[in-house]
């Protein structure tokens, strides 16, 4: 479970991509996810993935991405298998395309979340008019994921020490075992949230609706370049997608796959 969550865990690094304004990175995210959704063939999606991986390499985050991909491999296998078994025609081509689309989409989000600090994103959202309560709530919901994972570990360790075998038994036993885990966890987290609320009060949170954030977001030359490039590439993708040339390109690929 922790490896799947790892996709979205930010690590501070000093790379050109990390330095970009969150809004510029959001433009890149929109480009990649839109492209993954409207492109409908293996070769183009492969091109999208190559571009995404290139960006991850620039951000020195390809390792984290690969590890997270391992966590998603079950889902990818399921998409492949279910589509292959149920589709009427072009089974292999379509199943591969759909699986690749899933990978492209999650990678687009990895590019964004691996290079953007939660509170930078929150500051950007606040600058675009989101109330401060919500932006802080958003920051904290990501900030406390590792704490939650650790609490879960502590409780399951404590239960194991007392002889509860969480992973053993039939479905019914397992569900019952997990309630043993869940009840203390909920109590734990409620108590934690109370302590967090106290600490927030103690630092005057919520006194004012609008404040001047400490970090000033300013779009630089690189940010404008990234936004412009993303917009241009998106326009190009949309334009090409609806030409007869694209249809021919897809037919070519289908002919390679033949009857599979």
């Amino acid at each position: 479970m922790s490896s799947v969550l790892d996709v979205f865990r930010f690590r501070r690094k000093n790379t050109p991509l990390h330095r970009l304004d969150p809004r510029a990175k959001f433009a890149i995210l929109v480009l990649f996810s839109a492209a993954s959704l409207i492109l409908n063939d293996l070769a183009s999606l492969l091109l999208v993935l190559v571009a995404e991986v290139a960006l991850l390499a620039v951000a020195r985050s390809a390792g984290e991405w690969l590890r997270s991909l391992k966590g998603l491999s079950m889902l990818v296998a399921m998409i492949l298998a279910l589509n292959y078994l149920t589709l009427p025609s072009n089974r292999l081509f379509t199943a591969l395309t759909l699986a690749l689309r899933f990978i492209c989409l999650t990678t687009a989000f990895s590019v964004f979340f691996l290079t953007t600090a939660a509170d930078e994103l929150a500051t950007a959202l606040e600058a675009s008019g989101l109330p401060r309560e919500y932006s802080i709530m958003f920051t904290m919901s990501l900030r406390f994921v590792p704490s939650l994972a650790r609490d879960l570990q502590t409780i399951s360790d404590a239960l194991r020490c007392r002889g509860l075998e969480l992973e053993k038994g039939g479905l019914r036993t397992r569900i019952r075992n997990y309630t043993y885990l869940l009840v203390p966890l909920i109590v734990y987290e409620l108590r934690r949230s109370l302590m967090i609320a106290e600490a927030l009060e103690a630092r005057g949170f919520g006194a004012l609706k609008r404040v001047e954030p400490y970090v000033e977001l300013r779009l630089g030359r690189a940010d404008y370049a990234a936004i412009a490039t993303s917009c241009a590439l998106l326009a190009l993708t949309v334009a090409l997608r609806f030409t007869s040339l694209y249809e021919a390109f897809v037919r070519l690929q289908l002919s390679i796959f033949g009857e599979l």
Partner: peptide, 11 residues
């Protein structure tokens, strides 16, 4: 900076 932001101080 968080507490200072909450007080509404200028940047």
């Amino acid at each position: 900076a968080f507490g200072l932001e909450n007080m509404g101080l200028p940047r």
